[in-house]
Design a protein around this nucleic acid. Structure first.
Ligand SMILES: [Zn+2]
Ligand SMILES: [Zn+2]
Ligand SMILES: [Zn+2]
Ligand SMILES: [Zn+2]
Lengths: 139, 139
DNA sequence: ATATATTTGTTATGTTATAACATAAATGCC
DNA sequence: GGCATTTATGTTATAACATAACAAATATAT
């Protein structure tokens, strides 16, 4: 199922970004491309997310392009560096089964699961005093 | 450290609710109590959350009273029933160590972690055709 | 009692997301 | 090709969630 022009444009901007972008930040970057209202961005994001090509980060109200193949076949956790804003996607069988067991014990039928880990990435932890690249990130 | 009057009032409303409440829903229920602006609710919530007496559910933009003692001593996951709106707090050592291992392998230093599992609770799964109690919940 | 800090009230504004409806473009059928 | 049906897009307006800024009131400490 191919993407429409708008959907491709949104995906390209997400892919070229080093950190998550909010819908209005996307809108700004796409205004030269004909986008004029948030609806257009949200509509494209909706499709991209349903296709697994992008993710919404609930704790940031922001969006990223999917960068992990395995992502479609498992539960994905996001490691979010609060210093540089970068996102790492984590898929792990142990984690999936852990959560599976946990909800099974409660007779809970899981649909979608959100896991977002805030903290400091290895690069930012190493370079203690260097300037950060994407300072606009929530604590 | 005792709570102020406003903080207690917000906490009481949260405790008496069967499902998470948004800040403006809280404001409505507290308007007869002198609350007149969202700031007042958010300020109280801020304190309650910092004290571990309440939680914010990122995927719902809503708030619940903490109902689990163990909560303060571990990573808490929230099982959110999309049918009835009820929340179950889950603390599990296996899950914690799973996540710990996972981030350690990536040299990521975790701060706070958000885990929210949407799905259907056992009661709602059992009572297949009964009317739901809190229909206003995101999918 | 008076200075200090904290809490509260109030108004305004910022940020994120959706509703509603009109237009345009693609798709499938004859 | 014409025509109906669906899908995508553009546009305007509004809803929902959250914070900034500042003044007034209250608590606390010396
Ligand atoms: Zn992904
Ligand atoms: Zn970093
Ligand atoms: Zn709790
Ligand atoms: Zn339920």
């Amino acid at each position: 199922m191919p993407l429409t022009a708008n959907q491709q444009r949104v995906l390209e901007v997400l892919r070229s970004a080093e950190a998550p972008l909010g819908a209005y930040a996307l809108l700004e970057r796409l205004s030269s491309d004909g986008f004029s209202a948030p609806t257009q961005v949200y509509r494209a994001l909706d499709v991209l997310i349903r296709h697994g090509l992008a993710h919404r980060l609930e704790t940031l109200n922001a969006y990223v392009a999917c960068r992990l193949e395995a992502c479609r076949h498992g539960l994905t956790a996001f490691a979010i560096c609060d210093d540089c804003g970068r996102i790492d996607e984590l898929v792990d069988n142990a984690l999936s089964s852990c959560l599976g067991n946990l909800v099974e014990r409660r007779d809970f039928s899981p649909g979608s699961t959100t896991i977002e880990i805030h903290g400091t990435c290895s690069e930012c932890a190493g370079a203690l005093s260097e300037p950060t690249r994407h300072p606009k990130v929530k604590p």
